[in-house]
Design a protein around this nucleic acid. Sequence first.
DNA 1: GATGAATGAGATTTCATTCAT
DNA 2: CATGAATGAAATCTCATTCAT
Lengths: 239, 239, 239, 239
Amino acid sequence: MATTTRMTSADEVSEPHSTAQAITRAARDAFAEKGYDRASVAEIARRVGIVEGAVYRHFPSKRDLLHQVIRSFYEPLVESTTAGASAIEWPVDRVRYLIRRGLQALTDDRLGCRLIISEARTFDDYYESEIADLSRRYTSLMVDAVRDGIHRGDFRPDTNPQLVRDLVYGGIEHMAWGAITGHGDFELDLTARQLTDLVLAGITSPPPSTTADPTSRLEAVADRLEAVLTSTPTDPEQP
Amino acid sequence: MATTTRMTSADEVSEPHSTAQAITRAARDAFAEKGYDRASVAEIARRVGIVEGAVYRHFPSKRDLLHQVIRSFYEPLVESTTAGASAIEWPVDRVRYLIRRGLQALTDDRLGCRLIISEARTFDDYYESEIADLSRRYTSLMVDAVRDGIHRGDFRPDTNPQLVRDLVYGGIEHMAWGAITGHGDFELDLTARQLTDLVLAGITSPPPSTTADPTSRLEAVADRLEAVLTSTPTDPEQP
Amino acid sequence: MATTTRMTSADEVSEPHSTAQAITRAARDAFAEKGYDRASVAEIARRVGIVEGAVYRHFPSKRDLLHQVIRSFYEPLVESTTAGASAIEWPVDRVRYLIRRGLQALTDDRLGCRLIISEARTFDDYYESEIADLSRRYTSLMVDAVRDGIHRGDFRPDTNPQLVRDLVYGGIEHMAWGAITGHGDFELDLTARQLTDLVLAGITSPPPSTTADPTSRLEAVADRLEAVLTSTPTDPEQP
Amino acid sequence: MATTTRMTSADEVSEPHSTAQAITRAARDAFAEKGYDRASVAEIARRVGIVEGAVYRHFPSKRDLLHQVIRSFYEPLVESTTAGASAIEWPVDRVRYLIRRGLQALTDDRLGCRLIISEARTFDDYYESEIADLSRRYTSLMVDAVRDGIHRGDFRPDTNPQLVRDLVYGGIEHMAWGAITGHGDFELDLTARQLTDLVLAGITSPPPSTTADPTSRLEAVADRLEAVLTSTPTDPEQP
DNA sequence: GATGAATGAGATTTCATTCAT
DNA sequence: CATGAATGAAATCTCATTCAT
């Protein structure tokens, strides 16, 4: 029975309604290429090889189709990223992971990313919609990681987690446009490392070896030692 | 009488085509609120209080109107920012200025920013257009500042200027959306400082005063400790 | 039942898109009556009994509709005329046929003719279009016939075939306007004969029949005169 | 004073309202190039260098402007051709003249001719208008010439004058299109001669030596001669 | 579920014409 | 007479959506 369920489930996942999936894919391409408004249902149907009306057997409206398309790309991304992030204990590593994962998504499915970047936010009810939830869940992973890092003392206490989130995801989007429009490409590993280094360098707590503070602390230590040592002569319990 | 005529003339000069300007403003609002595609020329005309066709007396096409609107906002911004940046010698300060100026623009004219962010890049010929030029000129200010800073040794030699540009302007855009859509606001001065600090901390070279000095200071500390320790036995004021 | 189905199928074949055909017909009428520019798509749709937009389900543009309309009339005409002309050996007969066929077409479908005459040539790209090809093919039949006749010695060697073509088809067009606009009609057979006679008389080589007859008769006259004169001597004995 | 009046008059004639004339000329060009419907009043005004509304100071409507334009070209042509034709006595020469004059007009002002050919006839009230009158007057010159020729016995009695008119003017129009659209030019003198020769050959009465009539006349002559000759011997010395 | 045709509302754009100045 | 702005009607075309088959 488990097997049966699994297979059914597998079927549904891999090919639930082949037409519906084909429409979703065609819509994703069309929306990503021309934008939601300029991509017509007729064009999507043409890409699939069906007639316009047939689209409405699977999706109640064009707008619903957009939501579906975005969800089908975004949901797995959010799920997998959430899972991946929650398995990493150290905030620094989690930030590193989130940045790399975000860039990876961009490399894997630029059209999907373009959709989210340019179309998801264009509707009035965006912030009440399911997509907005996904977006919030996704970007809050970074906020949480940074907060966590602040708590643990890895990141500066005055770090603004929202700022880091805007910086990272905004930066990725900015790169995305260069990559999507073909002007300027990026190398995943290198970019991930550089971006991570920059951000971490910007928010990491004064590391033992890098800031001025430690030196003064050492000086303080030295002072104390000196004080102690020079006071030793006056130390009572001298044998 | 001559004076009167002159004043009228002056009025005409300072406000040469009040209708054209009114259209530009209405278009900016409409485009920013609903997006280029969903804002109709009819609506823009209604905002101005003229009929649809009258818009075409002043602008040859809807698209041209968009270009005009964006340019009228972007061009002054680029000019003033270029002027401001070129007057600042130190890269660190220039980066600080560029970040603050960018956020300032966002505070000053959110609708204009929204337009650039969400509409300027939606046309196929974007990268061949005048607006793309403005955009390149604008963001290259940051790239140049960072490059300059690398040359002078203020920024790490392995800093990627394009990455910094994407990070900063992408980050600002990301904030912009939050601010524009009303969800989440930001305080200019605070945000500018935090963003600047983060980025500068991320790219600034291990400061000459923090790396070199500490060593000598540590040596000094060591000397002092040594002195303290070695002097103990040879403590003079022995009773 | 199979038969019924087949017949239906046959009907469908012979009248595959009744709406498209209805549009073509309505467009032909409207274009012919008011001219391309002054006949609106809305009017054409109204004639068919559908809404404006429905026309665009069948024809991508108004202009394309015009082309289609012209082609659907012109192509068969050119084909059939070409076939008819090529079956006739003697140039004189071929010219006769072409003239009659041209006038016949005018009688058969004046609206179609009006379209070709007044609308086909109004577009800038006319001479690069398919319709221009048809036109050239059509009128070159006359040019070829005349050339052939010159070769064979039926027509004067100094005949200008292009001139004949312009004369005949221009003349037919001129008549067409009279006929179409209702002012002045023409009787097919009579006009065809007169036109043919005029043109042939104008280009035929000094005809064996026209020269020979009078000559022989003159010869006869001469004979008689000779007879008379020569009989004079044999006539003295007149009392 | 007489001088003043004359000069004013002269001015008015040579430059009655320079603006009005400029508009007429610009309109002629625009209408001829793009057709009446596709040439806008704005474009005509632009060619003149005035604003749209100014056109209406001189012409009550666009349509009226067209009429004016056509008349200003057609009227002189009709007048001069009428005068020229009426000065020629012999029908053959008159036909020759009319053909040459028509082709000449085409050479002199192709745009004007194009207007008449393609625009004058497109209005519903064409046949009630002044332009139609001009057209009738013009083409009837040929009809009259042919009729005259028939009366005098120069042209065949079965010649159809209307047919000749359609042939000649239709033929000229046909050539005109080739010439106007740039495809195929023509040499005035040669074409005029060829066209005239063809038409005259087609309608001229069998010349003294070619037809039946002369033959019978010759026969009559022969009869008389015969009579004379035979009677002569018996008739010489009549007291 | 799919088809093909149709709908109807709305988009951009054009343009002859008017009118206050 | 000319200007410049505006009008309002109409034109072409697009498109999401519906529906009988």
